[in-house]
Simulated scan of single mutants.
Amino acid sequence: MEMKRRKFQGVLNILSFNRHFYVIGVASLTLLISLVLYFELSTYYTVILVLGFTYGLLVPLIVSAYIYDYSGFYEFRWLDQFDFKDSKNNTIININAGFDETSFIIKDKLPQSNLKVYDFYNPDRHTEPAIVRARKVSNIYPYTQRISSHSLPLKAHTVDYIFLISAIHEIRNNDERITFLKECGRVLKNEGRIIMVEHLRDLPNFLAFTVGFTHFFSSVKWRKSFKTAGFRNINEIKFTPFMSIFEVY
């Protein structure tokens, strides 16, 4: 089953899931302009402040439109470079944090493979308001199973590919994240691979999302986490300046 994305769905998702930030931002900008007019502040400083607020509100939406609506990310052509084999003997798992936009796409790309979908969302641990809102509109793949981030309900060395698409940064606790990655390593076959896609805490994402980039982890942090979890091969490929695809095994 192919899920058709609406025009500007990526931007609309950002606005919907993070609307509390935009409400605060617009209210702050309105208050700022009111104070400027009331106190008749310098035009120079007024322009700087208004431009700063406007940048913080609009640029994340523009970048999100580029990444999620115009880059072809959700067409998954970037997956072709990994030369995955599609076979009825393959087991693939896709793990999300309660918002799933990729499982139907993965199944369309690899229709013969056995796809299992897991959701590790825990309302007590993963408390970001955006996740709560995203869960309400997520397209739930059939037989999606709720799991703990500490345990995957699979036998050792039985999985060919694991997809972690913009989800694992929601595990904010370092020990919990490493435990989760160790579980991924346990269930992977010797020749199996993890494909992880994430924004990074780097300069391009700072320019795009300003302080919001702190919600992501750096490439160095991810590499350290994977190595601590027992992985030795970590290849990073850029997809746009704002996202990285990690091939891990």
Rank of each mutant, 00 (worst) to 15 (best):
V220M: 09
H126Y: 01
V50R: 00
V220T: 12
R232C: 02
Y70T: 04
T214K: 11
I33P: 03
Y143R: 08
L41N: 03
I131L: 14
L200S: 06
P241G: 10
Y70Q: 15
K85Q: 07
V211K: 03
H126W: 00
L32Y: 07
G52S: 10
N18G: 03
W222G: 03
L181M: 15
S151Q: 12
R133W: 11
F206S: 06
L79I: 08
A229F: 02
F216D: 09
S148L: 11
Y44A: 12
S151I: 14
Y143Q: 14
I92S: 06
K7E: 03
F246Y: 15
Y45H: 14
K238Y: 06
V187E: 05
S103T: 11
L200I: 10
R133F: 09
E198K: 00
K189E: 08
F213Y: 13
V117F: 04
G10H: 07
V23C: 11
H150I: 07
L29C: 05
G212H: 04
K107H: 03
P60V: 06
L154C: 01
L110F: 15
K238E: 11
N13A: 05
I105N: 01
L49I: 14
A156D: 15
F246W: 08
E236D: 00
N18F: 15
L203D: 03
S219K: 13
C184A: 12
I48N: 04
S28V: 14
S42D: 14
G98L: 11
P204R: 12
I165G: 03
H169L: 14
I33E: 04
P111Q: 04
D202K: 11
N190Y: 12
S149A: 13
K238L: 12
E75T: 05
P129L: 06
N94H: 14
Y45T: 11
T30W: 03
G185K: 15
M243W: 07
S64V: 07
L41F: 14
W78K: 10
Y141R: 10
H169G: 00
F180D: 05
N94V: 07
N174Q: 13
G212D: 08
V47W: 08
D80M: 01
G25D: 12
I147F: 08
